[in-house]
């Protein structure tokens, strides 16, 4: 029996359909969700979420969020998310370089610019890793 899976980010719906298994980056570690999982509510961390279906699998880069698991349905509310196929590697690399540059020049570790650069670095790093590992072909 497949499990229904909805993945939405704040600005669009990323995935809606049936899946055999979902592997999600929970804040306490990777979670593999199979049908009839016990109800669970968890936060997600930066990572790759994989939806396995009969025909293959689809991967999504998720930058934090919330996941609700019910026996027959999984709902992922991602803060930021995109399909691995959609990742713009050149842009992510540029963003990473920019963030690293900013971190080098940031003396203070507590100001907003530093945190912003840190977030941007983590995000672009995640995109690059996800694209490298999960992109087909």
């Amino acid at each position: 029996m497949p499990i229904h899976c909805d993945i939405v980010s704040q600005d669009r719906s990323l995935f809606s359909g049936d899946a055999d298994m979902i592997i999600a980056p929970g804040s306490e570690g990777l979670l593999g969700i199979l049908p009839h999982h016990t109800p669970l509510l968890t936060t997600l961390t930066y990572g790759v979420l994989v939806v396995k279906q009969a025909g293959g699998e689809e991967a999504f880069a998720i930058a934090g969020g919330i996941m609700e698991v019910l026996p027959d349905a999984v709902t992922v509310l991602a803060d930021v998310g995109e399909r691995v196929e959609e990742i713009d590697v050149a842009r992510a690399e540029a963003a990473k370089a920019r963030a690293e540059e900013m971190l080098k020049h940031a003396p203070d570790q507590n100001n907003e610019a530093y945190l912003k650069a840190m977030t941007s670095l983590r995000r672009s790093q995640l995109r690059l890793d996800a694209a490298r590992r999960y992109r087909k072909g």
Binding site: L40, L41, T42, T43, I66, P71
Partner: peptide, 23 residues
């Protein structure tokens, strides 16, 4: 069904409810 919460219930509900209210 009774929910499992990860991390702890209070902490998770804080995060979840905050975010959901904001959205």
């Amino acid at each position: 069904p009774v929910y499992l919460f990860e991390p702890g219930q209070t902490q998770l509900l804080d995060i979840a409810i905050n975010r959901l209210v904001s959205i």
